[in-house]
Write a protein that binds this DNA or RNA. Structure first.
Length: 827
RNA sequence: GCCCAGGUGGCGGAAUUUGGUAGACGCAAGGGACUUAAAAUCCCUCGGGAUAAUAUCCCGUGCCGGUUCGAGUCCGGCCCUGGGCACCA
């Protein structure tokens, strides 16, 4: 029989059209079926898909299709994270409105996603830049304002003094503005914040529940929240002005030799008024971008303010310094310095010739040496008056009690986590729905006036937001009155939109409420898939928003994502694929050349999903070769399968039913291999080790090709094996398997076909091959009857002539038998 | 600077429920078959070294040390690479 050629372009178009006609991936809530909600992080519409997207979405699609074949009601939606900085940059560069650019990109990328054969329910598509989406986050924000969970305060931004604009951290290159080249300054402006710190305790505690998340991500989130127990201490000036410091080491309180405050601290500002030197220093501190990584790398500098405070216990006078390593956004913006027992303080004190006072000594009695570095371990108090001899815990309690009695301090739980600043001084984002009257009083926009729509037809000049030049947007009235008011021109951080899209996908057309009852059917997301780079920020904000929505009564669940898979980067020549490095591979070109199935297969085969993937053009061709081999194997052996049909038949779910099991040794051996491989495949699918699933399919294909198809029992085993391969490969290469399935089994829909089961009978074998070691070194193999007892195995091994060669005449000291696997003879 | 990962052949990676045959599967490379030729396909070899040898032996999972009958896997100390650090998304 003539074997038809494998033509991916043609069959993929046909199969995709079939799914479209059948509406195969459109789902509704079905209380009788177990639901499975699989979500991949939606893309920013930058123009075209890159390989990172292809990898992310292939992983998500494989999991979705796998779960569907387990009989679940699977929701897999897709949309666009459409607001953001790149649209503004493109607008300036190409003279096109950000909205137009974004909508064009979304249309193109949607076609690419369809071409890859992903099983999305497109009826649920959403884009965050559409008013029917963002009106609900505006609504939620107004509720947060009413509840006091959103508030305004001064905070620092990167300011480009030439372009007169705020820069993102990314736009600051080596301390200079990316366009102007001018040194960036830190500037304080009034911005909106959401009280994520009110939820710090719950966000921390619930990490324990996230058993389906990678431990690395859970650890990073715990550390990011950074709960600590300590005390807050007031140090007062002689005039009674207090400087409050937070410390987790109250046992070192008597070792404080100076206080350091941030440049933005009120005391520093006050001192600057009387001293040009201090004013200059504070100015110097501002000539640095606001990113923490930058600040931490700075040379530690400071100046005495000429202000002294009184030590809360010793009564000594202590100098207050302003220092560039103290962050205003952290704790109280002031730290008590203990150079003897904190390394950074030690370095600062050494440099500025400040006192270093030892107050902790090693508990084991070894000699304290702080001449080269601070001693930062816990120990026993010394030089601390009434606290001498106490260990860390008793000293903590004693100092805290003492300060609380004197009203000079208090126990406090502190978090490293800071409130979430959501204001952005940008145009292409969701307008923050508040207005200000002439006295700067704040009014949240009432529900009936939402959404506050962003004008889309604008020209961008690159200086400031166009909204500030649009009186029709800007000018309004106070809600319910006639007094003139001005709209907020800042927009939300785009992390706000991506913090709740997972919920909106459940009911994207709900126009009476942010979410409706359908959300509780689908939520929480059973499997979330996306890049590790989101391990902290996005994933923490989404967890936070989920709890906000719960507390406002919209949903029942506490956490948004039950399981999380963080996929690795896509590399080429050892570096991350990126335009700037010029090492990108266009997914479209690969799809055009080999088809979507080949690209999907390669991406899943090249490495396990969590690890980095090294792109290799030749290996893509190899993936295509495997699909062709499979295709040819199905078609060339078809006649033999017909001949084997009195041995094996398939039920409606496509499950193999043997009418009489194979009797020949060769067929039984082949079937043992097939079912052993299937066992591995089951295990690896459950663990998301798709690369080894594919390797096992390749091994199975190799085994079939070596078999003698003219022998009916072997042909029947091959037939069974091919149905197994087709099914387990269906989630990965859905088009070719759809067509092959028609050929093999006929009637049932492959996307809903049952999953193949391991036949325990096929795994039974009457002998086991043991690995033989002498003194831990591999010395041979020995076939032993499966029924042999441990003692029998031992005896067989000792008597084995090959083993005798190695043991010589040395007495055998010990024999270790690992049942079914290995024997180690020690002599 | 701080937090989190990862280092296995020429390359991507594999090594079962966390200690039990290191290198599955694929790519590349070399040799051969088929072909007028090429492509495609098929067969063989493929960590390093010693050796006439597909026999046998030694070495080998970033580096140094430890635990164990046995370590890629566990423990201690380093080195290097990658991700995140709150305005890239």
């Amino acid at each position: 029989m003539e074997i038809p050629e494998y033509q991916p372009k043609q069959i993929e178009a046909e199969v995709q059209e079939y799914w479209h006609q059948q509406q195969s991936f459109r789902v509704t809530e079905d209380p009788d079926k177990e639901k499975f909600y699989c979500l991949s992080m939606f893309p920013y519409p930058s123009g075209q898909l890159h390989m990172g997207h292809v990898r992310n979405y292939t992983i998500g699609d494989v999991i979705s299709r796998y779960q569907r074949m387990q009989g679940k009601n699977v929701l897999q939606p897709m949309g666009f994270d459409a607001f953001g900085l790149p649209a503004e940059n493109a607008a300036i560069k190409n003279q096109v409105a950000p909205a137009e650019w974004t909508y064009q990109n979304m249309a193109y990328m949607k076609e690419q996603l369809k071409r890859l054969g992903y099983g999305y329910d497109w009826s649920r598509e959403l884009a965050t830049c559409r008013p029917d989406y963002y009106r609900w986050e505006q609504w939620l924000f107004t509720k947060l304002v009413e509840k006091g969970l959103a508030y305004k305060k001064m905070s620092v931004v990167n300011w480009d003094p030439v372009d007169q604009t705020v820069l993102a951290n990314e736009q600051v290159i080596e301390g200079k503005g990316w366009r102007s080249g001018a040194p960036v300054e830190r500037r304080e402006i009034s911005q909106w914040f959401i009280r994520i710190t009110d939820y710090a305790e719950e966000l921390l505690a619930d990490i324990d529940k996230l058993e389906g998340w990678p431990d690395a991500v859970r650890t990073m989130q715990r550390n990011w929240i950074g709960r600590s127990e300590g005390i807050e201490i007031d140090f007062k000036t002689e005039q009674g002005q207090a400087v409050t410091c937070y410390t987790t080491r109250p046992d070192t309180l008597l070792g404080v030799t100076f206080i350091a405050v941030a440049a933005e601290h009120p005391l520093a500002k006050q001192a600057a008024q009387g001293s040009e030197e201090i004013a200059n220093f504070i100015e110097e501190c501002k000539q640095v971008a606001s990113a923490e990584a930058e600040l931490e790398k700075l040379e530690k500098k400071g100046k005495p303010l000429g202000i002294q405070v009184i030590h809360s216990i010793s009564g000594e006078k202590i100098d207050v310094w302003v220092a560039n390593f103290v962050l205003m956004a952290y704790g109280t913006g002031a730290v008590m310095a203990v150079p003897g027992h904190d390394q950074r303080d030690w370095e600062f004190a050494t440099k500025h010739n400040l006192d270093i006072k030892p107050v902790i000594t090693p508990a084991d009695g070894s000699r304290l040496d702080i001449s080269e570095a601070a001693y930062t371990e816990y120990g026993l108090c010394i030089n601390s008056g009434e606290f001498d001899g106490l260990d860390y815990e008793s000293a903590f309690a004693a100092v805290a009690d003492h300060l609380e009695q004197q009203s000079l301090g208090r126990r406090r739980v502190n978090y490293r986590l800071r409130d979430w600043g959501v204001s952005r001084q940008r145009y292409w984002g969701c307008p923050i729905p508040v207005v200000y009257d002439e006295q700067e009083n704040v009014y949240p926009v009432p529900d009936d006036d939402l959404p506050v729509e962003l004008p889309e037809d604008v020209a961008l000049k690159g200086v400031g937001s166009p909204l500030t030049d649009m009186p029709e947007f800007l000018q309004t009235h106070v809600p319910g009155g006639h007094a003139p008011a001005t709209r907020e021109t800042d927009t939300f951080d785009t992390f706000v939109e991506s913090s709740w899209y997972h919920a909106r996908f459940c009911c994207p057309d709900s126009d009476q409420a942010m979410l409706d009852q359908r959300a509780n059917y689908w939520l929480p997301v059973d499997q979330y898939v996306g890049g590790v780079e989101h391990a902290v920020l996005h994933l923490l904000y989404a967890r936070f928003f989920h709890k906000l929505m719960r507390d406002i009564g919209l949903i029942d669940s506490d956490e948004p994502f039950t399981r999380l898979l963080t996929q690795g980067m896509v590399l080429k020549d050892g570096a991350k694929m990126s335009k700037s490095k010029g090492n990108t591979v266009d997914p479209q070109a690969m799809i055009d050349q080999y088809g979507a199935d080949t690209v999907r297969l390669f991406v899943m085969f090249a490495s396990p999903p969590e690890q980095a993937l090294e792109w290799n053009d030749d290996a893509v061709a190899g993936a295509n070769r495997f699909l062709r081999r499979l295709w040819n194997s199905v078609h060339s052996n078809h006649d033999y399968f017909q001949a084997a049909s009195d041995l094996i038949q398939f039920d409606q779910a496509g499950q193999a039913r043997w009418l009489s099991l194979p009797q020949s040794e060769s067929a039984k051996a082949l079937r043992l291999v097939v079912h052993q491989l299937l066992q591995r495949i089951q295990r690896d699918y459950a663990k998301h080790h798709f690369n080894t699933v594919i390797a096992a399919c390749m091994e199975m294909t190799n085994a079939i090709e070596k078999a003698d198809q003219t022998e009916p029992e072997q042909a029947a085993v091959c037939y069974e094996a091919l149905t197994v391969i087709t099914k387990v490969l269906a989630p990965i290469a859905p088009h070719i398997t759809h067509v092959i399935w028609q050929r093999l089994a006929g009637t049932t829909e492959l996307i809903d076909a049952g999953w193949p089961q391991v036949d325990e009978q096929a795994l039974v074998s009457d002998s086991i091959e043991y690995v033989i070691q002498v003194n831990g070194k591999l010395r041979g193999h020995l076939k032993v009857a499966s029924s042999a007892s441990k003692d029998e195995v031992e005896k067989l091994v000792i008597d084995d002539p090959a083993v005798k060669r190695y043991t010589q005449d040395k007495p055998i000291r010990k024999i270790i038998v690992v049942p079914g696997r290995l024997v180690n003879v020690v002599c």
